[in-house]
Amino acid sequence: MARKIRVLIAKPGLDGHDRGARVIARALRDAGMEVIYTGLHQTPEQIVEAAIQEDVDVVGLSILSGAHMTLIPRVTQLLRENGADDILVIGGGTIPEDDIKALKEGGWVKELFTPGTPLEAIVEWIQANVKV
């Protein structure tokens, strides 16, 4: 049995800031994970469908456009509708403290990482929270 953590890194919406997403994708690969990167401008529907087909453990959303309050709940809701809410949803980008609190308390997201977060912290969070 050779289990590997699989992560989908996606950029929802019209946001073109993909540096963070690429940096994260590479860091997770270097930590031994299989990372599926789907590129820019994804709709929540595309993200959820990819997450299901790729059978990932984690969906990571990178949002620097300010649209996180609509995009993140939408992805989580679609996962639930597809019976795939065992997949962990996390994210990062420029997201204000208050919104982070609201999204986490609302159960829309497991964890959010803001600019400046060390990559090791993100790797460690995933390793600690995905049951292998």
């Binding site: 590997k4 994708a25 590479r26 997770l28 690969r29 270097d30 031994g32 990372v35 789907t38 590129g39």
Partner: peptide
């Protein structure tokens, strides 16, 4: 080296 992989083919199949 890491045993990890960056799977990017889907980018073109969206």
């Amino acid at each position: 080296f890491s045993g990890g992989a960056l799977l990017g083919d889907r980018i073109r199949m969206q």
